[in-house]
Nucleic acid binder design. Sequence first.
DNA 1: TTTT
DNA 2: TTTT
Lengths: 176, 176, 176, 176
Amino acid sequence: MARGINKVILVGNCGQDPETRYMPSGGAVTNISIATSESWKDKQTGQPQERTEWHRVVFFNRLAEIAGEYLRKGSQVYVEGSLRTRKWQDQSGQDRYTTEIVASEMQMLGGRTEAAMQGRSQPSQDSGPDYGGGYAQQSSAPAPSQNYNQQKPAPSTPQQPQTPSNFDSFDDDIPF
Amino acid sequence: MARGINKVILVGNCGQDPETRYMPSGGAVTNISIATSESWKDKQTGQPQERTEWHRVVFFNRLAEIAGEYLRKGSQVYVEGSLRTRKWQDQSGQDRYTTEIVASEMQMLGGRTEAAMQGRSQPSQDSGPDYGGGYAQQSSAPAPSQNYNQQKPAPSTPQQPQTPSNFDSFDDDIPF
Amino acid sequence: MARGINKVILVGNCGQDPETRYMPSGGAVTNISIATSESWKDKQTGQPQERTEWHRVVFFNRLAEIAGEYLRKGSQVYVEGSLRTRKWQDQSGQDRYTTEIVASEMQMLGGRTEAAMQGRSQPSQDSGPDYGGGYAQQSSAPAPSQNYNQQKPAPSTPQQPQTPSNFDSFDDDIPF
Amino acid sequence: MARGINKVILVGNCGQDPETRYMPSGGAVTNISIATSESWKDKQTGQPQERTEWHRVVFFNRLAEIAGEYLRKGSQVYVEGSLRTRKWQDQSGQDRYTTEIVASEMQMLGGRTEAAMQGRSQPSQDSGPDYGGGYAQQSSAPAPSQNYNQQKPAPSTPQQPQTPSNFDSFDDDIPF
DNA sequence: TTTT
DNA sequence: TTTT
């Protein structure tokens, strides 16, 4: 159930190969960064301007497996999901916040040729033999907490996703 | 022009009255925080769970004036916009990031009664006599960067309303 | 699975009370018409113009029960779904087509006051005692085809509320 | 201005080359049909099922020119727009209705390789030398009525199309 | 870090 | 009529 609508729709390109990890439960978690960009001419100078926006996207479970297997650096992808801002502590113990899109639907874009030319080297894993397309949808259950990879329990809010213990290592994963 | 789609759709309630400032150019900038929430039952314990997500939304120019005048704490609102992550430096000079929704469209929800009961005290400003509705759409020009006038951007959460501890108290903050 | 994205998002008001029927399987099917409108000034004459668009929305199963119970003429509602064009034959045997939005998510808008003032007389049915909110989401199973039980699908408009001739009269139909 | 939200988002493939015509005003109007499809397994029989949905999309003015020039049969495309149901009379004078998506934004998907392999034979027209991408956005003015039905462009006049004269000829254009 |  |  929900009160309110929290919906994000992205079409963009993966900045790098997806990273897949596993939660203690065994469920997969895949992270990607998607770029969208916008260009315009400066009104004063007439100079062409461009701004690229990077979006952190996280997939869970089955969707994480599919994303991990089929997406690659440069892949064009449609993602639908919701915004989630996670709180974590940096080395100095200060609260910091990261906003991500928790994906509920994903679809690869660009047909066969495109996919064929992407040359998938070393797929992260197998999602099973029966999946043959570039589409996947998350079950509508609430996204699981993202406490894979963690050494100690999260200190703060109970029902929220656990703050990954060692956010330094997580932090190192953030390319910006 | 753009490459990619970067779209956010929110329906939620304002956590507080909007804050309107002005850029050197004279253009208005209005910030609000919108809450969306989700509730479910824990699969193990069966306990009801709730998570409220707070979204920082920024309006520019005409849309900022309308938002500043018509929205109030508790207002239910539809917002469409795009994600933008801004980089700023905290006191210690460290890079930090804040993700906001730059609104391109806004519409007040909940009809006349609702609006009437919201008792708009001290409207921030006038948007002119001919505006009579709860709808507004931004011109499609790229949003200006938002470093007008201010010393340090605040991080996402500190200046936001606190996440309510339970739903009853949250309800009390909202006039319906 | 899907190839492609087929998504509709509507926020509007119900033109009349919902109609709920039952499929042979026992599953509920609810139909509503939602109005959205747009107004502008004619560029030549400067005259105010308005266009109201009516959307046929169909809900299935659990969502149909909730829509049937909670929505009423005038209710403001958020609907998300997908487009489906159904083919049928008119009396003369000619093929005709009707486009509907098959809802996958629904949320009532306008808070308690709003809902309270809508005075729900004769709810179509009961959806059970434990539902207390204005939100519902369809399971992701493909919607069943809607030719249960009935002889001839009606064309799109005849059974819809008439488009109001002007905005004042339209207002009178809606309880706010 | 608007009351309500009327939004459609499609990602799909063009069923055939776009058709571009010109309104008396000189503004272009382009029609395409976009397919989206969904597949699933029948719950009883376990048989794989597929349903393809066809969406009529109409572009106006600049967007129509771009769509006409860059899209081709098979092109994968993102379209955002709004639903509009038009009323028209068939040969026997009966009222009939057609629902279309009036596009406000369009973006070609699938990158260079993809586009290159689509081998654009006979582009419908020129949209000018400075357009080099697969993206376009409509001005936010209300969609004009659709009375193309003229063979000759009247190149000079302002971009707002006139009100339609009749729809009989339009009838002939509908491929279903 | 992607893409055009 | 597309696409997988």
